[in-house]
Design a protein around this nucleic acid. Structure first.
Lengths: 225, 225
DNA sequence: ATGTGCTTCAAACGTATGTTTCAAACAGAC
DNA sequence: GTCTGTTTGAAACATACGTTTGAAGCACAT
């Protein structure tokens, strides 16, 4: 085969189109024509569209979770028994994402956007696939978060983790559009690394906010059910 | 007409189905059969599926933006010249959302989920519609945020607002699923009002975090490009 | 050269979608 | 009752989708 393998060409095209338009909104015909392969190739090599979606995620998630595991290993070894801080844990995650070997310059933002979509577009099969394939590093991250925030109640921690995930998934999943807006409005350019560097302190501060269930300012007297 | 108007029945069914499944994943046939009206009724009364989507948003967004405007009016009047605080601004928004007259008990979470979807599912026509229809209260909210955080640079503020939007949109758009998980895992029940009461302090703390562009912990030495 | 296993190709399959059509049903005014 | 404008109904429209089919193409061992 002179040109790159059909399988990889399909994965590349699918990855980009999924990230741009979502899963249901991307047809196999778009993918195969962008990849310059025959329509039937997807079903031949992957079996179905859903299986292709899984393959797209597997291709970047498997090396990522390996990187993440070793980053956590290193972090825990360095901390020598005492639990890593919240900042250290968040940075370990961020670095693992940013350090991943990229296929091209858009790699990291595609990566982020796909993760955001996986959370947002409630594709049942995808969630099931991710849960049974990558539950381990996820559970470990949760454990680290728990040990780094012993002052929080389980319920508080649960919700604040959701807030963190939301801020991250949302920002990263639209980072391209947001960067464009910022470039046009304020004339500044931003890398994904810089976004991450702004995001982590935001998350850490929110995670450690002192007063949960703060009542609204006294003057406004709404009933909190 | 004996039974509630066809138009309203369509809107009710569409609202619920869109919130559950997203826009592309919800067909007109699902909507009309849930609403118990003829398939052609949607195109007769609204013109197209996209116009129906706009109508669904308009029905709750128009009264909401009116409520929000008066909440801002009241807040600014009470502050008498000096800019409202960040907490006050966020609470004004939250109260307006929570206080909205609901069609049923699921009203508020449907409302939130639809807003989240509007941001996430990049339907070009929807974004255009929302921008030209509701730019005013949005711009006012942005102005209040700016005045409440004079210590932030424009770029910092921009990104932190995106983080806030993300945490909010994401959490609210999956609030049902998240509440289910929490109920099963920790056996506690949560109302949307309580989620909001947890979210606001998180957002306020993140928004006012002191150190932006914090370098990663010294030991880890990653290059921030 | 001949056969073998994998891959590509064009074409078709069945199903689902949004939209249109046009006749029937209906309500209110005269 | 009859006419008029609006709303409903069943059916069909054209198009797009994911998937399947079976023949053709290809590399390589025999």
């Amino acid at each position: 085969m002179a040109q790159p393998d059909t399988v990889d060409r399909i994965l590349d095209a699918a990855e980009e189109l999924f990230a741009e338009r979502g899963f249901s909104e991307t047809s196999l015909r778009m993918i195969t024509s962008k990849a310059k392969v025959n329509l039937a190739a997807v079903n031949y090599h992957f079996g179905s569209k859903n299986a292709l979606i899984h393959a797209v995620f597997g291709r970047f998630l498997t090396p990522f979770s390996a990187t993440l595991e070793s980053a956590f290993d290193e972090l825990e070894a360095r901390c020598d028994g005492s639990p890593p801080t919240l900042n250290q844990t968040l940075w370990a995650l961020t670095e693992s994402a940013v350090r991943m070997p990229q296929r091209n310059e858009k790699g990291i933002s595609i990566f982020m956007r796909l993760l955001g979509l996986a959370y947002t577009q409630s594709q049942g099969h995808l969630r099931k696939f991710l849960e049974q394939e990558y539950s381990e590093p996820f559970a470990r991250f949760m454990r680290l978060l728990k040990e780094a925030t012993p002052q929080l109640s389980a319920v508080d921690r649960y919700w604040r983790i959701q807030f963190m995930l939301g801020a991250t998934a949302f920002t990263m999943s639209s980072s391209d559009a947001l960067q464009d807006i910022l470039r046009n409005k304020l004339g500044v350019d931003t890398t994904v690394q810089e976004i991450a560097a702004r995001l982590v302190p935001f998350l850490a501060a929110g995670m450690q906010a002192q007063d949960t269930l703060l009542a609204p300012p006294a003057e406004t007297h709404i009933p909190v059910a």
